[in-house]
Amino acid sequence: MALDAAAPGLPDQVRGIVAAIMGVGPAEVAEDASPETLAAWDSLRHMKLILAVEEAFGLRLTDSEIVSITDLQSLVTLVRRKRGGGA
């Protein structure tokens, strides 16, 4: 099930995935969420998050793209770029 990346709610879709994987409510995932601000965001959940995002959007990130993801913002930007939605 690939989500529609062109939809205006892309950041919210990614946020929903972050919330589900970290096991918190969507409201707890702030726009600037990162491993520093969210206690549940450890390295293992980070891996699971990226796998879940790839699965949800039908993407495959390269290893260098994976290591460039450090927080919610960089994840959203990358997903948007990979889906051809511009920066």
Binding site: M1, G16, I17, A20, I21, G23, K48, L51, A52, E55, A56
Partner: peptide
């Protein structure tokens, strides 16, 4: 289903 849906 996708990982995120199962978790939710």
């Amino acid at each position: 289903p996708p990982l995120a849906d199962i978790e939710a």
